[in-house]
Design a protein around this nucleic acid. Structure first.
Lengths: 308, 308
DNA sequence: TGAATCCCAGACGCGCGGCATATGGCAATA
DNA sequence: TATTGCCATATGCCGCGCGTCTGGGATTCA
């Protein structure tokens, strides 16, 4: 036989009452079995917990220390039960969110994370910014629970991907460039005007979505872009633009990041390229917190009307 | 039915094995009852802890959090058992030691406390210095577990008092007093030489032991002392001596406290008064730590040969 | 595609253990 | 000394946890 919680529950009541008979009453049982259980507990511990007096029982020194511990054990069990329930309902747990390099600049992304943290304060949220391929691997390996990705559909098996919204892409030009100076028609720029430029491409292998959007738009505009240096991510591409090496197209939300030497200009015309934002998670990801996050993000995306 | 430790023990093994059949093996039982118990636990929690797969079972998110809590609960129970055993054996607990005002000056007292703390480091020792009557009340009320007192026998009912040792009393004289100057026979002083002095008495009501020892010695020396001002404790009596108001007799160990304006001189002759040091505890004090302390002190006292 | 394997879940019966009833013993109170 | 209050022991019952047997679903071979 071993110590069971029943022993602790009985012991606590007897200790509080100082009286086996009254404790039995409170426990809804008879006195003899309660006496037996207390005796069995003492035998298990090999420690006398009570001194039997003529009128009731009295805790020994060891009984007093054991009472404190027993109370805390019982409280811990209750807390563990509640924690499990909270976790099952998604109110508690961990949520690892993956972001593409451009994610933090899209106002929708940090807003959603903030809203989730406010709604589920017991879920500890961690964020990791990495390249597209790492996001997918992370989701598969379980190091990430959910990720924003720059794609319109679901390429990888085992993942659920939902398109959230799209946004126009804008041209990023060196500040010294002729088209960068706001002329008489300072509005949108037809993509054809960039036919002669050198295009800096980024994330071609890891996350080809934006790369392909750029190529498709150019071809639609009637030219095949001259490709220049390749950059691993948007930020590095923009710093190449700043040094005058070429131009590139980026999601409109990147305009929030003002960068010395870089000027953004919106594009117009039928060839307007678009950048997509999606949310991805494991298809068999059972975490309720993940489900809540995905649902919250999708609902919010539907409510958005304006695009960036 | 309620959750029992058995459920947690089973759950932990199943979670670790990821396999009900193997877990049952490790638990020395068959698979079906183990499946039942896990299911019963899940039903109690109203939370699914495992996902049943083709090859074994897999913890859910809620199961993972519950596993951590279950492990800590089981560890807490083990620790509680050990703590109770340590307390029962006196290796752990609290020990409130009472000291008379002269206690800290007797080298034996702090030495014993230090030795006890080294021998039983898990027992948290607290000390309180107070008057004799407060010591007795504290022992009775349970605010003190054990006390050193200045008496040779047990006056109060319900307490066990053991005489530890005695020590001679010495005269405390104002520095300006004629007998304070070390003359040609600078050794011990016959008590009769103080017959004409004013005696400062202390702790007459609260702890009459030393007061009575003084009177008895004087009467044995053939005179009845003229009593001066009364002081609540030895220290205050000595400060009265320092201001020249009178003389008093104190335990020899008090000489360790050198005080400006006070000179100590040993006494000699058949009327040599003695101060006693005893250890007292409740007779029905069941605390093993108390028993250890009393035993240690008594043993050490027997080993002492010299007196202070 | 069918057989084999693996593993969890349900059905059923048994035996242990926890509980209730009845009773004894001890100490405090009158 | 009688009475009361309370814990401990004795005994029988019943529920429940466990073992055995069996079924069903998924994966892995041939």
């Amino acid at each position: 036989m071993a110590i069971e919680l029943r022993h602790l529950r009985y012991f606590v009541v007897v200790a509080q009452e100082g009286h086996i008979t009254r404790a039995a009453e409170r426990l809804g049982m008879q006195q003899p079995p309660l006496s037996q259980q207390i005796k069995a507990l003492e035998h298990q511990l090999d420690v006398q917990l009570f001194r039997r007096k003529a009128r009731g029982v009295e805790l020994t020194e060891a009984g007093r220390t054991f009472l404190a511990d027993a109370l805390s054990v019982l409280a811990c069990v209750d807390e563990a039960v509640e924690a499990a329930r909270r976790t099952a309902s998604g109110k508690q747990g961990r949520l690892g969110i993956g972001l593409p390099p451009s994610g933090p600049f899209h106002p929708f992304v940090p807003r959603m994370i903030r809203r989730f943290r406010e709604t589920y304060p017991l879920v500890s949220v961690s964020m990791e910014e990495c390249l597209r391929a790492e996001l997918v691997d992370g989701l598969r390996a379980g190091t990430l629970d959910v990720a924003f990705i720059r794609a319109s559909i679901a390429p990888p098996e085992g993942l659920d991907v939902h398109l959230l919204m799209d946004e126009p892409m804008v041209a990023a030009l060196p500040a010294a460039h002729a088209l960068a100076r706001p002329g008489p028609r300072a509005g949108a720029l037809p993509l054809e005007r960039l036919a002669a430029e050198t295009f800096i491409v980024y994330a071609r292998l890891q996350g080809p979505a934006l790369y392909e959007a750029t190529l498709a738009a150019c071809s639609k505009a009637g030219f095949s872009p001259r490709l220049g240096q390749e950059a691993p991510r948007i930020i590095s591409a923009l710093s190449l633009v700043a040094s005058g090496i070429g131009v590139t197209l980026v999601p409109a939300s990147m305009q929030r990041m003002t960068m010395d030497g870089v000027v953004f200009r919106p594009l117009r015309g039928p060839s307007q390229p678009k950048a997509f934002l999606s949310i991805a998670a494991r298809r068999d990801g059972y975490s309720a917190a993940v489900r809540h996050f995905v649902a919250m993000v999708r609902r919010a995306a539907q409510d958005e009307v304006r695009s960036y």
